[in-house]
C-alpha cells in the first residue's frame, strides 16, 4: 500500500483535483489533509501549505471536492480533533462516510478513539503505533480491525527524516506483525524512492507527505515526483 498525503484544496481547487486524480491513479491511496490553524504534528513545509490555504477553503468545500473524486476510492482524511468536533462529529461522519475509508486524526491518541465513536463517528479511525508503544497498546487497537495501522517511524513531526535501518523500528514492526495481519503503513519521514522501497520491505507500505506537499503547487514537478516513486 503506497500512499501520498496532500493538503486539501491546495494550491487551488482545480489544481488540487488534478493532483488528487494523479495520486489515485498512480498510487494505492490518498490522504487528504483538512487544514487546521494549529497543526502541532506538522513541520514547516506542511504547516506553511496549510497556512496558505486557510481562509480560502472551508471544511464543507473540501468534503464537496472529495465527493468529486468518486465513491469507493481509497481516500483517507488526515486532520485534527477540533475540525471534526466543531463541524459536528455525527454530521461530518454522515456526510463523508461513503466517500472515505478512514480518518487519521493527528492529535487524537488511540485511547480517545471512543470519544469520537461514542459521539457518532462511523468512519474507522486509523490508530498510531510509535516506537514507544507497548504490546498491550497494540493489542488494544487491533480489536477495532482498522483498515491499517499508521506506524510513526520517527519521534517527531512531519518533515523530519526517518531512519528505517534503525533496529528499534524494525523490531517494533515485527512485534505488530506477530500480533495481527492488519497492514502496517509507515508514515512520517519517508522522503523518496529509496525510503519507499525500504518501507515496503520492512512493512506493508508507506505514506509520503512533506516531499509531495513541497511540489504540490507545481503540477509538472508533482507528476515527476510521483513518477520517480514508480
Amino acid at each position: 500500500m503506497r500512499g501520498i498525503y496532500i493538503v486539501g484544496g491546495y494550491p487551488d481547487k482545480e489544481s488540487f483535483l488534478k493532483i488528487a486524480d494523479i495520486v489515485l491513479n498512480k498510487m494505492d491511496f490518498i490522504e487528504i489533509g483538512i487544514p487546521f490553524s494549529d497543526p502541532v504534528a506538522d513541520g514547516p513545509i506542511i504547516s506553511s501549505a496549510i497556512n496558505n490555504i486557510l481562509g480560502k477553503i472551508n471544511v464543507k468545500e473540501i468534503i464537496d471536492i472529495t465527493k468529486l473524486l468518486g465513491k469507493e476510492k481509497n481516500i483517507f482524511y488526515m486532520t485534527y480533533s477540533n475540525i471534526i468536533y466543531s463541524y459536528g462529529i455525527k454530521k461530518f461522519s454522515d456526510e463523508v462516510k461513503n466517500y472515505i475509508k478512514g480518518i487519521i486524526i493527528a492529535d487524537l491518541p488511540n485511547r480517545l478513539h471512543d470519544f469520537f465513536y461514542q459521539r457518532g463517528l462511523e468512519i474507522p479511525i486509523i490508530p498510531f503505533i510509535t516506537p514507544e508503544s507497548r504490546e498491550s497498546d497494540i493489542k488494544e487497537i487491533i480489536k477495532y480491525r482498522p483498515p491499517f495501522i499508521y506506524f510513526i517511524g520517527i519521534r517527531g513531526i512531519t518533515g523530519s527524516k526517518a531512519d528505517l535501518d534503525n533496529s528499534e523500528i524494525i523490531d517494533k514492526i515485527k512485534v505488530i506483525k506477530k500480533l495481527t495481519d492488519i497492514p502496517v503503513i509507515i508514515g512520517f519521514g519517508i522522503k523518496g524512492k529509496k525510503d519507499a522501497k525500504k518501507a515496503i520491505s520492512i512493512a506493508d507500505g508507506f505514506v509520503i507527505g512533506t516531499e509531495a506537499v513541497k511540489v504540490q503547487n507545481n503540477l509538472q514537478l508533482f507528476i515527476d515526483f510521483v513518477n520517480s516513486l514508480q
Binding site: 502541532v40 487524537l108 488511540n110 480517545l112 471512543d114 470519544f115 498510531f128 514507544e132 510513526i152
Partner: peptide, 19 residues
C-alpha cells in the same frame, strides 16, 4: 479515561507519541 475529564472537559488530545 474518566479521570482525565472535568465533567465533559479535558482529555488528552495530543499526538500518540506523547502518551
Amino acid at each position: 479515561i474518566k479521570k482525565m475529564f472535568y465533567g465533559e472537559y479535558g482529555g488528552q488530545f495530543v499526538p500518540e507519541t506523547l502518551i
